[in-house]
């Protein structure tokens, strides 16, 4: 939290972040109900995961000023899994072949 700003005033930006997160969640729900599977849809879903996680980490958890080990590890986690989701969506057979126990 910025020490030059009063807590009451600086907490107002949280309202906007909350609203943004609500809109993105509803967008996800609409995609789930209506959109046919495609690369663009998958990319959008994964992009929304990253943005939502970044908003929570940066604004709700306020980790920007925290130890960089914590901040970057937390961020890396929420980039890694969306990227893995895209890779598995794009190359399911290759992933299955690489991880098959018996031939």
């Amino acid at each position: 939290m910025d020490k030059t700003t009063s807590p009451a005033k600086s907490s107002r930006h949280l309202d906007m972040i909350w609203l943004l997160l609500m809109v993105m969640t509803i967008t996800n729900a609409v995609i789930a109900e209506q959109a046919e599977p495609s690369l663009l849809v998958t990319l959008t879903i994964c992009w929304i995961i990253v943005i939502k996680a970044r908003l929570v980490i940066d604004h709700f958890m306020d980790l920007k000023g925290a130890s960089p080990y914590i901040y970057y590890l937390m961020n890396a986690y929420f980039y890694l899994f969306p990227i893995l989701a895209i890779l598995v969506w794009l190359f399911p057979e290759q992933v299955a072949n690489l991880t098959r126990i018996s031939s």
Partner: peptide, 25 residues
């Protein structure tokens, strides 16, 4: 159900953040 739970959890996270600001104030 999944959407409502997401909205509920995000809102609860927001409430926690507001609580921290209130206590600091």
């Amino acid at each position: 159900a999944g959407t409502l739970n997401t909205l509920v959890l995000i809102s609860s996270s927001y409430f926690v953040a507001k609580a921290i600001f209130a206590l600091r104030d």
